[in-house]
Each structure stands twice: as structure tokens, then as C-alpha cells.
């Protein structure tokens, strides 16, 4: 394998795809497995530290991790020549690989949409980056929280499909 070969660049994008995926899903699981259950146990006077210091930083790496994951994933699928086959879930292709990676891609794409078009706009209201009344902030926190939970749910079959496609059918 030459260092500058097409295969090397395809591998490079797969590597970057996994790295950025860890950045994204790592933060998603931090929000759901660590932060959300712990915040109610933190004394009131210490809670602003989460919203003012940890949350903005975590959301930055979370949303840009999501963006890097989808961009590198689409490039990788394009370079490997199965982007369209995966988008149409391998229907008519007689390939379980395309179907499996296709389901993974669609689940990941739904999660990416949720991050950028539901969670982030609502979190901007919660953090005061966008003007909102107290009632709106409360509703936004609920919407962002539930959408984050939906993404946690979707991450389980999404990772199954991503890893399963390679493990069983590549």
C-alpha cells in the first residue's frame, strides 16, 4: 500500500470518520450518561458552572464532531463507490452490505440533523445566546433533552450497522 495511493486516502477518511464519531458520540453519551443524571445532585450554588463553562465547550465539540463525522463519512462512501447504493438501502443491489451501511448512514444522518437543527438551536436559547423568555427556555431545555435522548437511542442501532456492515458483510 503506497502512502499516497487512493486506498490510503480512503483509509485516512475512514480513520478521521471514526475519530470524529468518537468525539460526537462520546459527548452525546457524556450528556446522557454523566451530566444529565448528575446535575440534579449538584448543589444549586455550583450549578451555574455547568451551564457557563462546561456546557458551551462540550456543545462545541459535540456539534462540530457531528459535522466532521457526516462529512468524512460521505467522502468515504463516495470514495468507496457505494454512496448511492447505501442511500437507497441497497434495494435492488442484492447486497446486505449496502443495506446495512445504508441503515447506519440514514440513522447517523437523522442524528446529525437532530444535533444541528433541534438540539443546538434550543440549547442556544437555554444558554442565553439567543433571546428567549423563561417559559421558552424551559420548553427549549425539554426539547433539547428529549432529542438528545432520541439520539442516544438511535446511536445503538447506528453503531450496530456501521460495525456490523464491516464485520459481517465487507
Amino acid at each position: 500500500m503506497e502512502l499516497v495511493s487512493y486506498e490510503w486516502w480512503a483509509f485516512c477518511f475512514r480513520w478521521l470518520h471514526v475519530l470524529s464519531g468518537i468525539m460526537w458520540i462520546g459527548h452525546l453519551w457524556y450528556f446522557n450518561f454523566t451530566q444529565a443524571p448528575t446535575v440534579p445532585k449538584i448543589p444549586m450554588e455550583l450549578r451555574p458552572a455547568i451551564g457557563k463553562f462546561i456546557l458551551p465547550e462540550a456543545l462545541f465539540w459535540f456539534r462540530w464532531g457531528a459535522m466532521a463525522t457526516i462529512v468524512t463519512g460521505l467522502i468515504l462512501a463516495g470514495m468507496n463507490g457505494y454512496l448511492l447504493n447505501a442511500i437507497k438501502l441497497g434495494i435492488g443491489d442484492h447486497s446486505r452490505y449496502y443495506t446495512t451501511i445504508g441503515f447506519g448512514m440514514w440513522l447517523g444522518a437523522i442524528m446529525w440533523f437532530n444535533v444541528w437543527f433541534i438540539i443546538w438551536p434550543n440549547q442556544q436559547k437555554v444558554m442565553g445566546l439567543v433571546q428567549a423568555s423563561d417559559d421558552e427556555k424551559k420548553a427549549s431545555a425539554r426539547t433539547a433533552g428529549l432529542t438528545s435522548r432520541i439520539n442516544t437511542l438511535l446511536s445503538i442501532p447506528m453503531v450496530y450497522c456501521m460495525v456490523g456492515a464491516m464485520h459481517f458483510y465487507a
Binding site: 441503515f103 435522548r149 437511542l153 445503538i156 442501532p157
Partner: peptide
């Protein structure tokens, strides 16, 4: 009725259930 997504354990359990559904769909398609 309480939203199952309010429980982290139920969310994870639903994730595994959805995985089974997806696997069935994959095998149904190809």
C-alpha cells in the same frame, strides 16, 4: 403515561429493541 425517554435505562433498552427491528428490516430487504 410517563415518557420512556425520561429514563436512561428505558432509552438504552429501546435502542436494543430498535436494533433488532433494523436487523429484521436488513434481512427482509436483502
Amino acid at each position: 403515561m410517563k415518557n420512556p425517554l425520561d429514563s436512561l435505562a428505558q432509552t438504552v433498552a429501546l435502542g436494543f429493541v430498535l436494533t433488532v427491528v433494523v436487523v429484521i428490516l436488513i434481512h427482509a430487504i436483502n
